[in-house]
Design a protein around this nucleic acid. Sequence first.
DNA 1: CGACTCTTTGAATTTTGTCAAACTGAGTGG
DNA 2: CCACTCAGTTTGACAAAATTCAAAGAGTCG
Lengths: 252, 252
Amino acid sequence: MSASTSDRHPFIRRLETTVALCDRERAALERLPMQLADIRADQDIVREGDRASRSFALLAGCTCTYKVTNAGKRQISAFHVPGDVPDLQSLHLTTLDGSIGTLTPCRVGFMPHEALRDLCHEHPRLADALWRGTLIEGAIFREWTVNVGRRDALSRTAHLLCEWMSRLGAAGLAHNHACELPMTQAELADALGLSTVHVNRTLQELRRSGLVVLTGTALQVPNWALLMSFGDFDPTYLHLQTGAPARPALQG
Amino acid sequence: MSASTSDRHPFIRRLETTVALCDRERAALERLPMQLADIRADQDIVREGDRASRSFALLAGCTCTYKVTNAGKRQISAFHVPGDVPDLQSLHLTTLDGSIGTLTPCRVGFMPHEALRDLCHEHPRLADALWRGTLIEGAIFREWTVNVGRRDALSRTAHLLCEWMSRLGAAGLAHNHACELPMTQAELADALGLSTVHVNRTLQELRRSGLVVLTGTALQVPNWALLMSFGDFDPTYLHLQTGAPARPALQG
DNA sequence: CGACTCTTTGAATTTTGTCAAACTGAGTGG
DNA sequence: CCACTCAGTTTGACAAAATTCAAAGAGTCG
């Protein structure tokens, strides 16, 4: 199955938040070979140690990057939302140093490295935009280290929820500070460096304080400014554009 | 003060671990405008919120990237060794989302973004090598999240020491598993997400077990394999070349 | 309904943090 | 050369945060 224009829209949309694409660039992106795949929840898309010859754009659904320690504990180091290219690093690093798995059913588009390299060399502005994407990912990793290392469970969790809402908002998947939160408490725990039990208690406290409304997989934030301050959240590190197109749903 | 060939050697050496430079590329690197500066210990080189028009190569000494939370706690998210370009991200991200400070007296070489952009567009292989460098940095961030999130104080600290030794080794600054460890226990604590007191006790235990010999600022590892296994350390994520030139000092 | 997974609860335990003070060693100025 | 300072390390006692273990509810899907 090969990706149509509408399939690859989240990926192109993401690039457009950085560069205004010219016709040539847009055409090259439309022409980029992209093999579609639909993947169930809780499946690995790539595994630690793999040597990849392609990367994938996440077109629908959510994935995470994780590692498992020798002691058998799992740490999630990143969540991904539609438009991300979670393993673009493998374009320049031969061996994957972590696994990427689905949190929900996902639609992904595999792009051969060869085609990506050609794209980059013929369209330097697209190369810069892709590079930029990996740099933003890096900025998020840094913030996660801060979050896990220096914030207590309560503000750490609040911070993660703020980031999640902001990134989904930038992808057009959050409105009025409401979005899906499709991961289990065990997955949140692995992302936060906490135990499942403690995440459960922490979420309860966030609910009790009225900071979040969590019903099933739906997250809503009644007072965004309050949650931001509670989670010590400053969105600078996400490097969302301040202009019109990048975050249409999260003002106020 | 402008950098001579020997000044910029650590920077070029690093690129050479990835690509075999042709004469044109090497000449371009030698010609790259680079303004030298010597900076005392405990000084910020760039600050969170800055809008940079240049990046710097670290030529001698050690620096760290850090953030301070609203609660006043500091988290170091990266250490840098000679050859690194700690703020290369600012080439594509307008606002710096963290500060970079010196741990020791440092020599750095500032490179204007304009010159770096020209270099990248005229020498795509150098662009790829620089991109690759930022991806490795990203891989290290991920591992730090795992370290801080899911390893107890003892193996967390051991892991950090393993990484430090490996990276200094790759820079030619470690031999026979001995190197400098120029940071204070408070700085280690900020990197590990622990308190200074606990780092002190943890280091004592590592010494008592004979895993490390720490005298002043000198670190020595009598049994490298043992420390690696103790720190759950797998160097894959550092993406050091397995070939001859990249890690000359750490076999065995 | 029954089998799951996911969430919630309670109690005991462990790890790590906090606070306060003493110790050490390398400068510094009298 | 000696007090003095200062940053860094070390120690002890106590407190707080988070983990672990075990078990009970809730919700969902076939």
